[in-house]
Structure formats: structure tokens, C-alpha cells
Design a protein around this nucleic acid. Structure first.
Length: 432
DNA sequence: TCATATT
């Protein structure tokens, strides 16, 4: 009441939390009310899909202080499951937030023989050092870089500006590098970037000098011309100014090399692998409606699927009459900016033991013959981009899903047998 | 082995 209207109070000490596992139907006020039971909260922002404006199932929560933020985290993270969610709330500092709060510095180009004491002596001129660690390898040998935390951002900034590129430690011909430490996100990006270039380059190309590599900043451009250390060893700085990472891991571009996999690509056609193309039972062929480019749904049936009589009406596998599927695989399945499209109850499949090299496209293609595929998603590890070998396929009808189960469950694809089941249903029937 | 998503 007597409280002044708090506009955007994104002050230095307010803290942003990221919250996952938020049911898409919840509103910001509902969430605000809920979080206020546990901590002071200034604001809740639901994260929405740019295109559809619908909730992406997560939100940001702004707390006035770190203490309040911690209260919210401790009370909610993995502790509460909101109605309709499949797993408990995920409540954590938003990307970059911890780093921003800690004003952590990275120090590079340290001579290997320099110890904590010497680093401390130099940097304590700018403020009280809260934390300092020199990175060391197996024999405790210094990696030539360190992380350092001050109590305040101002102290860190002062040190950064005074020392970066300017101060040479005794016996060193090269000035120290001081920059804001990478955020977790940047580290992940770098990791993924490296994994990717490793996958596409010859394995001998990675002979970077480790300490130099670690010292080179990715996003930070110093206010002066160069660091001074690029000349001596002839190491160019240029390669480190990388473009934003490509989120598509290299294997997405790999052609599946198994013959069965090729058979899954209508655009390649079964004739690419005549030896692997098995003529399907006539009854099945006859019952399958003529769809351009899709006339070989049984290609992978060849010897792989136990020839079971189709007990359900053959018509039920019709891919949603007259869809605009003009032949190639890349049409209806992969659309929709980010969010997965879910089909009606009973039309969504969970699939396990998907071959490692399959991506969304390949999965969609594999399940296309049984009906209109609304979405197909293979799950990949966030950091490495490696497939987790499971995923989801959604159809527009339960009949299509049943057909896919009967044809594809137990089907040997790659090394293992597919497991194809109805997706578990998390949503409880709406109470009114 | 069942949707991990950072305005």
C-alpha cells in the first residue's frame, strides 16, 4: 500500500533465476504468487516462443537480493512439482548470473613458476581477494592461468583495467591477460565448438599450446590493439574469434552408412541398395495407398520385422489423406519453431534404441509411412550433441501410432531393436 | 527408458 511503485528495479544486487518445468498454461501472476510464498520476488517473466507467443515451459524470476534468490532455490528446486508438469521445478541462477554476481576474473599468461602468493601480492592492491586459484595439471604444474574473485565488482574492474595487457610479471616477456571469466554458457559453447571441429578436422590439427589456448578470450575485445602475446610464438589470435557456434553437430550431416538407414530415405530410393530391398508381402503393398515418394514403407521391413498380419484396418495407416507431402521427407515433420507438437491422446510414441546417428529428420522419415507425422524429436546431450538414442514421434491419429508400434516395435535398426511404445501421459485429466 | 526450456 504505502509501497512506492517499483519500476524496473534491475539494480546491481537483484538476482535473476531461471525456472524450468513450468506448465505452459500458468500465468505470470500465478507463478509470482507461488514464489512469493518462499521468497521476496519482484517479477516473473514467462519465457515465450518468439513466433507463437506461447510459453516455452520456463520463466525468469527476479529476486531483490541473492539471499532471497537462494531462498527460492532452496525451497523449490527439485522440491515442488507443479500440476501438469512431468518433473519437479528446476530453479537456478539464470545463465551468466552467478558469474555476474561473482565478478570472477580470469588471469592468463602467468609464468609457470608463479605461485598464489605472488599473484595475490599483485592483485591485492586493488581490493580484498576472496578467492584465488591457479589452475594446475597432474603434477601440480601450473597451467599458466588462474581465477580470482574480489569482494566487489569495482575492485575487479580496477584490476582488470590496470593489469590486462599492461603488467608483465617478473621474468616474463609477455603481459598478463585479465578478463571476466567465461560464463558457463560460453564454456559449453567452446566445448561444443571444439568437439565439432574435432569431428570434422583431421585429428592432428589440435596441437594448440594449452596454456595459450586457455588464455585467449573468446568474446572479449580489449580496448587497445592486441595483447602483445600474439607475436612472440607466432600464434595468431585470429582463429579464436569464432563465429557463433553452429548448433547442428557434425553427425547431422553424416550420411547414415548402414544400408537399412539408406532404405529409410525415400529420396535415395531403394534402388540405391538393391541387395537390401526386400519385396514386401503383396497384401501389404496393395493396401498401402499411393503416396508419391512414400511407396516403400516396407523397405525396412525386409527381414527385420516379423511378418505379422495387419489385424487393424489397412486404411488406418493412411497418412492423413491428401496431405501436401510431395515426396521428400522434409515437409511436415520438422516444422514448428522449437516446440514439439503433440498429437491427440494415444497418438504419441516414445522410441528407444534409436540408432546413434539418427537425427530428427531420420526419425521422422522412419515413422512417416504409418501416418502423418506431426513431430519427431531425437534427444541429444546438451554439451556433446550426441544422441541419447531415444525420442518421440507424434502422429495426428492413434491409429497411426498403433500401426507404427506394430510395425516398428522390435524392429532391428542399426545394432539394436527399436522399442516403440505409447508415450507416457503426464497430463492428468483436467479437474473442473 | 518418457519433452533440459535462458526473454
Amino acid at each position: 500500500m504505502a509501497e512506492a511503485k517499483e519500476e524496473s528495479k534491475s539494480s546491481e544486487e537483484s538476482v535473476k533465476l531461471f525456472v524450468g518445468q513450468v506448465p505452459k498454461h500458468m500465468t505470470e501472476s500465478e507463478l509470482l504468487a507461488m514464489f512469493k510464498e518462499f521468497a521476496l520476488v519482484d517479477e516473473v517473466n514467462i519465457i515465450k516462443d518468439k513466433a507463437t507467443r506461447s510459453s516455452r515451459g520456463c520463466c525468469f524470476v527476479i529476486c531483490p537480493s541473492r539471499e532471497e534468490a537462494d531462498k527460492a532455490v532452496n525451497a523449490c528446486h527439485n522440491k515442488k512439482t507443479l500440476p501438469g508438469a512431468s518433473s519437479p521445478l528446476q530453479v537456478k541462477y539464470a545463465d551468466g548470473e552467478l558469474e555476474r554476481l561473482e565478478h570472477k576474473l580470469f588471469i592468463g599468461m602467468l609464468p609457470k613458476n608463479v605461485s598464489e602468493v605472488e599473484v595475490s601480492a599483485l592483485f591485492s592492491k586493488f581490493g580484498t581477494i576472496k578467492d584465488l586459484q591457479i589452475l594446475r595439471g597432474s603434477q601440480q604444474t601450473s597451467k599458466g592461468c588462474a581465477f580470482l574473485k574480489y569482494e566487489t565488482k569495482e575492485q575487479a574492474l580496477a584490476a582488470l583495467e590496470a593489469i590486462n595487457g599492461k603488467h608483465k610479471m617478473e621474468g616474463s616477456s609477455v603481459p598478463l591477460v585479465v578478463k571476466w571469466a567465461d560464463t558457463e554458457k560460453e564454456r559449453q559453447a567452446r566445448r561444443a565448438q571444439r568437439a565439432q571441429s574435432q569431428a570434422s578436422n583431421a585429428p592432428h590439427a589440435d596441437s594448440q599450446h594449452p596454456s595459450l589456448f586457455g588464455a585467449l578470450p573468446m568474446g572479449y575485445v580489449p580496448p587497445y590493439n592486441g595483447y602483445g602475446y600474439q607475436a612472440p610464438g607466432g600464434y595468431g589470435i585470429m582463429p579464436y574469434r569464432m563465429p557463433p557456434m553452429q548448433n547442428q553437430p557434425g553427425y547431422h550431416n553424416m550420411m547414415p552408412h548402414m544400408n537399412q538407414a539408406n532404405a529409410l530415405r525415400p529420396e535415395l530410393g531403394p534402388n540405391m541398395n538393391p541387395r537390401n530391398y526386400h519385396v514386401p508381402p503383396a497384401s501389404y503393398v496393395g493396401s498401402y495407398p499411393a503416396v508419391p515418394g512414400l511407396q516403400h514403407p516396407i523397405a525396412y521391413a525386409g527381414g527385420m520385422i516379423s511378418p505379422r498380419p495387419m489385424s487393424s484396418s489397412p486404411g488406418s495407416i493412411s497418412p492423413a489423406g491428401g496431405n501436401g507431402n510431395s515426396g521428400t521427407s522434409s515437409s511436415s515433420a520438422s516444422k514448428s519453431s522449437g516446440g514439439q507438437v503433440e498429437g491427440p491422446p494415444g497418438a504419441n510414441l516414445f522410441i528407444y534404441h534409436i540408432p546413434q546417428e539418427f537425427g530428427d529428420q531420420e526419425l521422422a522419415t522412419a515413422f512417416q509411412p504409418f501416418g502423418r507425422v506431426l513431430s519427431a524429436k531425437v534427444f541429444v546431450d546438451k554439451a556433446t550433441g550426441v544422441s541419447k538414442c531415444f525420442g518421440f514421434v507424434s502422429y495426428d491419429s492413434p491409429e497411426a501410432a498403433q500401426s507404427a508400434i506394430s510395425m516398428m516395435n522390435g524392429c532391428q535398426l542399426g545394432g539394436k531393436k527399436l522399442k516403440v511404445q505409447l508415450k507416457r501421459d503426464n497430463k492428468q485429466s483436467k479437474p473442473y
